[in-house]
């Protein structure tokens, strides 16, 4: 049985831990609000953008744009978007597992794989494979559109130089505060909008006046589209990260409470046992004097 003092110290330690986890929980909650707001603000832009993109890309030959060119896949690049910090449950681990699986799938087909990591967690995880082409650490806290643009330009340049024939992006999708799921999406080559949407879109687009020509607009739009995709993934990850941290820190605080409860029981039992022992001594001593 642990001594009284040891148990007391332990209770103190756990209490302090629970204070920290509680504080982290509240910080994460505040940051989550900010991240969700950012996502909310971005939504109208993304929706409008996709609508215009659909209007334009329908009925266009995908082979005529370098960013839409479908090549035989020899090298694939996986863009892994994770958080910079840990202590958010299994959130990063899930993303990394998915990226890992994707890599194995490519390699099983005899294709080369390279990584581009946004966020420290992914970078440190894939470092040992030696396949990391580029990392963008310390962005997730304060990133803006121009950060996403720099990354998107890099990805596009790599694709155009034929160093990668296909680019996949793996990130954590924010479904709700309680649920974040890893998701992967094909980033390059850009796929034209699906056929059933095309029918509706062509009727509208037929009447449009384009300035400059549709082809030239597409040239401008495709890189922008990449920005939107990367930015969107980063927004999702940042919101998911804070949501995941919030719930995992909540769990940690609850676990601390349980431990404190158990330790207090042990402490009280030990204290009681000590008092009983002392009483026995006194009674024993008194009996001896009497005799």
């Amino acid at each position: 049985m642990a001594s009284l003092k040891e148990v007391k110290m332990k209770i103190g330690g756990v209490k302090k831990t629970s204070q920290i986890t509680k504080a982290m929980n509240m910080v994460a909650a505040a940051k989550l609000r900010g991240a969700q707001q950012k996502m909310e603000n971005f939504r109208p832009y993304a929706e409008k953008f996709n609508a215009a993109m659909g209007n334009l890309s329908s009925g266009m030959d995908s082979g005529s744009f370098p960013l839409m060119e479908v090549r035989e896949v020899k090298c694939a690049e996986i863009v892994v978007v994770t958080s910079d910090r840990g202590l958010c449950g299994s959130f990063n681990a899930n993303i990394l597992k998915m990226a890992d699986k994707l890599m194995k799938k490519y390699e099983a087909d005899g294709k080369k794989v390279s990584f581009l990591c946004i966020g420290k967690k992914g970078a440190s995880y894939f470092k040992k494979t030696g396949k990391v082409r580029k990392t963008y650490p310390d962005l997730m806290g304060t990133f803006q559109m121009f950060n996403a643009r720099a990354i998107a330009q890099d990805i596009a340049a790599n694709f155009l130089a034929a160093d990668a024939d296909e680019v996949q992006i793996v990130y954590g999708k924010f479904q709700s505060v309680a649920v974040q799921k890893p998701a992967s999406q094909l980033l390059l080559p850009v796929k034209p909008v699906a056929a059933d949407e095309q029918a509706a879109a062509t009727q509208v687009s037929a009447a449009y006046i384009y300035e400059p020509s549709t082809e030239e607009i597409m040239e401008v739009l495709l890189p922008l589209y990449m920005n939107v995709m990367v930015y969107h993934a980063m927004l999702e990850v940042s919101a998911s990260e804070h949501a995941a941290r919030m719930s995992s820190m909540d769990n940690a605080t609850n676990a601390c409470k349980d431990i404190i409860h158990n330790l207090t029981l042990i402490y009280n039992k030990a204290r009681q046992a000590g008092i009983t022992g002392e009483l026995m001594d006194i009674v024993g001593g008194a009996e001896a004097l009497k005799g």
């Binding site: 215009a52 509208v204 449009y208 006046i209 300035e211 400059p212 607009i217 401008v220």
Partner: peptide, 19 residues
């Protein structure tokens, strides 16, 4: 400021898309 210089749009303009 459009692709081919500044342009103005009034009500009932034809459908138009420009960078």
């Amino acid at each position: 400021p459009g692709y081919g210089g500044e342009f103005g749009v009034l009500a009932n303009h034809a459908p138009f898309l420009s960078t």
